[in-house]
């Protein structure tokens, strides 16, 4: 397994950094303490480049590139925090808030929500896109867990953790576009799922209050993710 991995040097925000050639920009930035927001990305799961929050500017590239799937290259010059990027990130967060119902004050994940904390961090103090507020169901048919589609941002972390780590593939996405929604099995109540192992991984990787444990009240639902890097390593046979 341990072949000689070459090292690349690149410039991020005018800082010289070194990286292994198989690393992504996001990994290198986080290693070097450079903040890059991301909601769909989670260490240990296949990156999908869907939330667009980690877009960065790379010199010589016409388009913005998602740091989570962009590999480092020798001599790359990357900017992660230009005014333009900050503006887009705020606008994207606003799109998330406007898509469904994200009223923090009544949410069990209030104070433990990645969407909320990113908004605070990036200074999103209001949403100037019209709220869509579709009326979406809350499925509490499972013994231990609840899914509230109103809080779901379609990051697909639950889909990936269930497929890649637990191996159950209970979750997937149905429909498309603005009507897309996560489902269990044949879009049946979660509690009736034939494939769900009730392992709870989906709940703990969910960045918002969409997937939560039953019996939690407002602001009580903190997520535990320590298991993920370990399980990933085990699956890859590196331990």
């Amino acid at each position: 397994m341990r072949q000689s991995v070459r090292v690349k040097t690149l410039k991020i925000d005018d800082r010289d950094v070194g990286a292994r050639e198989d690393q992504t920009l996001l990994e290198v930035c986080r290693e070097n303490g450079i903040f890059i927001p991301a909601l769909c990305h989670l260490d240990g799961l296949t990156p999908v480049g869907a939330c667009r929050l980690c877009l960065v500017e790379v010199k010589g590239q016409r388009r913005l590139l998602p740091a989570c799937v962009t590999r480092v290259e020798e001599g790359m010059e990357v900017n992660t925090a230009t005014e333009r990027l900050k503006k887009y990130r705020r606008q994207i967060l606003e799109l998330f808030f406007s898509e469904r119902n994200h009223i923090c004050s009544v949410c069990v994940s209030n104070g433990h929500c990645e969407l909320q904390s990113l908004a605070q961090q990036l200074g999103v103090d209001h949403v100037h896109f019209p709220y869509r507020y579709p009326r979406l169901p809350v499925d509490a048919s499972h013994d231990r867990f609840v899914i509230d589609h109103n809080r779901c941002i379609l990051c697909t972390r639950c889909v990936r953790v269930c497929d890649e780590i637990e191996g159950a593939h209970t979750w997937d996405v149905m429909g498309r576009g603005i009507n897309a929604r996560v489902i269990t099995d044949l879009n049946k109540p979660w509690g009736e799922s034939e494939s769900c192992t009730s392992c709870g991984k989906c709940v703990h990787v969910c960045p918002t209050g969409a997937l939560v444990e039953k019996g939690r009240s407002v602001a009580e639902m903190a997520k535990r993710r320590q298991f993920l890097p370990y399980l990933t390593l085990m699956r890859e046979g590196k331990q």
Binding site: V48, L95, I178
Partner: peptide, 18 residues
């Protein structure tokens, strides 16, 4: 574009609807 958007990335999914 709104009905044909696959819904994977947020700008296209929600932006086209807005």
């Amino acid at each position: 574009c709104m009905t044909e958007s696959c819904g994977k990335c947020i700008p296209c999914r929600v932006g086209t609807a807005h």
